[in-house]
Design a protein around this nucleic acid. Structure first.
Length: 348
DNA sequence: GAAGCGTGGGC
DNA sequence: TGCCCAAGCTT
């Protein structure tokens, strides 16, 4: 006869669901039952923090309130709405998926985990999240949060990558085993919420954890470190002119062949200065910007002379509707060319 | 299986 | 300040 402990599944369920009832954050995508809106939220939330998603999510649904509206939009408009969120492939695939639904499909979001998996940009986790939250399908949604929570709860994990991969497959099975078949959407969200607000990667708040008593590691679980970032220097040109009484800024469009941010708009790059004492003059703005594994030190310098062939003069109003890179947006905001962002901050 | 893909914010 | 990411997917 097994010893009775708080790790009994009945207790795990009650403890987590009670905790979630008390502590769940009031988030916009938890106020809707619309599968389209839930889908949009899941794509935006991939590798992206809740706080960063709140305002773009609101604006995106206002601009593209239905899957039909999204399918009918120009890709450039979708990218413009995605500007600043990063991982722009997500926006392109979301757009393509919407067109797929509206042309070959019947205009309704696919109704099952298996059917959702057919959509571009929807993988195992996202399909499970949408199916369980929007339709109540009993499938476990295992994201980075759930992975971390279960690895720590069970004391699994290894520095050996092969062994670790084995543990991750075990996590999938464990998540499926633990899934609450009555309310799978609530359960999945509760698991993710626990990882996002209590079982944090670096400093877990174990004192606030409903599963503390049954946890195998209680904050002692190590996580692997990533490779350090390198630093590079980049200069960009800031050139404005007056046309018809309107101030215009010179932007260029990145090549469609670029692997990073293809087709998006940015400030014209300038050659790197050979030394600190250069002919380029004093920067009007300096900032840091990290892209992938590189820390960029950026200088924005006032430019003059003819525009490059691929350049385009735009007003602030136009720029606000274009697919700008995050760096271009950041520089333009700092220099007063775009409105400062007011982001609602939600606290647990 | 590993690499590639962005960004703003917390500590 | 500099480092570390965060509700992954595709190739």
């Amino acid at each position: 006869m097994a010893k009775k402990t708080v790790t009994d599944e009945t207790d795990l369920h009650r403890l987590l669901l009670d905790w979630f009832t008390r502590e769940r954050r009031d988030l916009p995508w938890r106020r809707t039952q619309d599968p389209y809106a839930i889908w949009v939220s899941e794509i935006m939330l991939q590798q992206t923090r809740v706080a960063a998603v709140l305002e773009p999510y609101r604006a995106f649904l206002e601009r593209f309130p239905t899957v039909q509206a999204l399918a009918a939009a120009e890709e450039a408009a979708v990218l413009a709405a995605w500007s600043g969120l990063g991982y722009y492939r997500r926006a392109r695939m979301l757009h393509r998926a919407a067109q797929q639904i509206c042309s070959s499909g019947n205009g309704h979001i696919p109704l099952s985990h298996a059917a959702l998996l057919e959509l571009p940009g929807v993988g195992r986790y996202t399909a499970a999240a949408i199916a369980s939250i929007a339709y109540g399908e009993p499938v476990a949604a295992v994201d980075g949060n759930v992975e971390r929570v279960l690895l720590r709860l069970r004391g699994w994990g290894s520095e050996d990558p092969v062994l670790h991969a084995k543990y991750l497959r075990r996590v999938q099975r464990e998540a499926a085993r633990l899934l609450d078949p009555v309310s799978p959407g609530e359960w999945n969200q509760a698991m993710m919420e626990l990882g996002a607000t209590v079982c944090l990667p670096r400093s877990p708040r174990c004192a606030a954890c409903p599963w503390l008593a049954g946890c195998a590691t209680r904050g002692e679980h190590e996580t692997v470190r990533r490779a350090p970032m390198r630093t590079e220097i980049r200069n960009y040109r800031w050139q404005t002119r007056l046309a018809d009484g309107m101030e215009q800024l010179l932007l260029i469009q990145r090549s469609q062949a670029q692997t990073v941010m293809p087709g998006m708009w940015e400030l014209p790059p300038m050659p790197d200065s050979p030394s600190k004492h250069n002919h380029l003059g004093k920067p009007i703005l300096q900032l840091r910007h990290a892209i992938m594994q590189v820390n960029y030190r950026i200088a924005i310098l006032r430019g003059e002379g003819p525009a490059p062939a691929d350049g385009r003069w735009v007003t602030a109003e136009e720029a606000a509707t274009m697919a700008l890179t995050g760096l271009a947006r950041k520089a333009m905001r700092r220099l007063g060319w775009l409105p400062k962002l007011t982001r609602a901050v939600s606290r647990p």
